[in-house]
Design a protein around this nucleic acid. Structure first.
Length: 519
RNA sequence: GGUCCCUUCGUCUAUCGGUUAGGACGAGAGAUUUUCAUUCUCUAAAGAGGAGUUCGACUCUCCUAGGGACUACCA
């Protein structure tokens, strides 16, 4: 019979959640949902020195925003707690003792300073079977001496006693069989007396076992220590219930070599964190996807496709539900994925277009407010309707001018300013103005404005019904010049729509102003 | 340095021994257009290199090269 699938996402609260961590969590979520299993949220805070206040709350809020729901864990409840490792001291102590008792681990008194000195002295020094008998530990010291040192309050660590010369197999769901010889592993520190806490490796294995985790889905950076974890399961006698492993490929820099870092985001102008983060120590602010104007569905969709894709089963636009349906761990790619932030923007564009126009109002309203403009929701929805398919210019990482679709509500401002603010001056060097404002244009516009003044129903339909025949009869092509008057540049929506939005009075006023300015 | 992982268009990827090597982002061209666009259509663009195995290799094996990760009393 199959055990219920249980997976976990276990970050350490040392800062904001990196976007790569978000993807790891997402894959865990998809896997859990797909198998009707549980997703556990565990906090791995065994390094008291690296604790950052607010990080845990940040992580929880991030997942809330993204729509990734946990079934149990810190802040979610559950009967396998506590889920914060710093609250599980007694549990770890007990299991460390088990290893000590069955000879799989030993106590070592070498201080960090002594080890540093040793590493300087001996090149490639490793604390393992070949060296441990030269060190100060319970293997070399008399039992009374060990007891005495502990009683005198000397700090010590517990090390895992690794037997050399054995090929350790890890059966990875993504990579297949990975074999590492135990001789290259060092006697890892499992527990430190200084803060009475275990290190990652011990806590991880004990918790995964006690929490009945069935699948460990994590980043590739853990692959080298996976054999160590296998050995630990064996040492505890838990080999038969050991979880299956799946090591995900890493997220790489968009340009150049190496893994994705915060600096890349700063340089190229995209966030590497889900939410904006204010560092409590340095006061530094790191941008977040949410604040940048990304929709959570877009972030999820984009991230899911970095390292996995549904093949021919489905196109790339997928809701969370569809992702759950099509996701397949065994179809994850093995190689690292460069972070394509341009495609991320494209996804956002797609999801933005899917939204009803009113849904843009909160974000767009904020943008307008920054410019000192207030508009009603219906006005904003109108503008969005007319302008959301436009394109905006931007500067890419290499400093090249490029164009891309409107991907964020904030993109709208430079393109929609004229809806709310009349042109104040006209650039005579502007190609569009030059081309469309010539001798006689002013007279033409004057005539046109007189006709417009007589329009009875100032709506798109009304304008069309009255002006179209008139333009036809007069043999005029007033559109571009009219655009110059109302917009001041060669952009904007259909002229009737613009005029209807501005209203008769504003329209005529702008025309009058343009005529006097341009002559 | 050592160990392990990886290698298909610029990017993300499909292919699970037999295909004109497919799609998406990006790029280019054309059509449409009341400006800029959108949209639509089309185009260019790839199996790192070398040995094998096989009737046949992008797919399996090995070597080389390149990339990545790990190598803490951090996770």
């Amino acid at each position: 019979m199959d055990k219920k699938v249980r997976v976990r996402f276990a970050p350490s609260p040392t800062g904001p959640l990196h976007i790569g961590g978000v993807r790891t969590a997402l894959y865990n979520y998809l896997f859990a949902r797909q198998h009707g299993g549980d997703l556990i949220f565990r906090i791995e805070d065994t390094d008291s020195t690296r604790f950052v206040p607010g990080a845990e709350e940040y992580i929880i809020e991030s997942f809330k925003w993204l729509g990734i729901q946990f079934d149990e864990g810190v802040s979610f409840g559950g009967d396998h707690g506590p889920y914060r490792q710093s609250e599980r001291r007694d549990i770890y102590k007990k299991y460390v003792q088990v290893l000590l008792d069955n000879g799989k681990a030993y106590i070592a008194f070498d201080t960090p300073e002594e080890l540093d000195a040793k590493r300087k002295e001996v090149e490639n020094f490793q604390y393992d079977a070949s060296t441990r008998l030269q060190m100060r530990n319970s293997l070399t010291l008399a039992p009374e001496e060990v007891t005495r040192l502990i009683e005198e309050g000397h700090q010590y660590v517990v090390r895992f006693r690794i037997e050399p010369g054995r090929d350790v197999e890890v059966d990875d769901l993504i990579r297949g069989k990975v074999v590492i010889n135990s001789s290259i592993l060092d006697d890892k520190v499992l527990y430190k007396s200084a803060d009475e806490l275990p290190t990652y490796h011990l806590a991880n294995i004990v918790d995964d076992h006690l929490m009945e985790v069935t699948h460990v889905i994590r980043g590739e950076e853990w692959l080298p220590s996976a054999p160590l974890h296998v050995l630990l399961y064996e040492a505890f006698g838990w080999a038969d219930t050991m979880p299956r492993f799946a090591h995900l490929p890493l997220l790489l820099k968009p340009i150049g070599n190496g893994k994705l870092s915060k600096r890349d985001g700063d340089k190229l102008g995209f966030p590497v964190f889900p939410l904006e983060w204010h560092d409590p120590k340095s006061g530094e602010v790191s941008s977040g996807y949410r604040e940048k104007g990304y929709l959570p569905q877009a972030v999820v969709n984009f991230l899911a496709l970095l390292g996995w894709n549904p093949g021919e089963a489905h196109d790339e636009m997928m809701t969370l539900e569809e992702l759950v349906q099509y996701f397949d761990l065994s179809k994850c790619s093995k190689n690292g994925a460069k972070f394509d932030y341009v495609k991320a923007a494209w996804f956002n564009h797609q999801y933005l277009l899917q939204q009803p126009d009113e849904a843009w109002a909160p974000a767009y309203g904020k943008v307008l407010a920054e410019q000192g403009i207030t508009a009603s929701v219906s006005q904003m929805a109108e503008v969005v309707r007319m302008m959301k398919t436009k394109v905006i210019e931007y500067v890419d990482g290499q400093g090249n001018k490029k164009k891309r679709n409107i991907s964020f509500a904030s993109d709208l401002w430079p393109l929609t300013k004229f809806f709310f603010v009349a042109p104040e001056a006209f650039d005579l060097e502007d190609k569009f103005i030059k081309k469309n404002w010539k001798e006689g244009t002013a007279d033409e516009m004057t005539r046109f404005s007189q006709r417009l003044a007589a329009v009875e129903t100032w709506t798109v339909e009304g304008l069309k019904a009255e002006i179209d025949p008139w333009v036809e009869a007069e043999q005029l092509r007033p559109w571009n010049a009219w655009r110059v008057c109302l917009v001041g540049a060669g952009q904007g929506p259909d002229m009737y729509e613009l005029a209807a939005f501005l209203g008769k009075e504003e329209t005529l006023q702008r025309m009058k102003f343009a005529i006097t300015q341009l002559g």
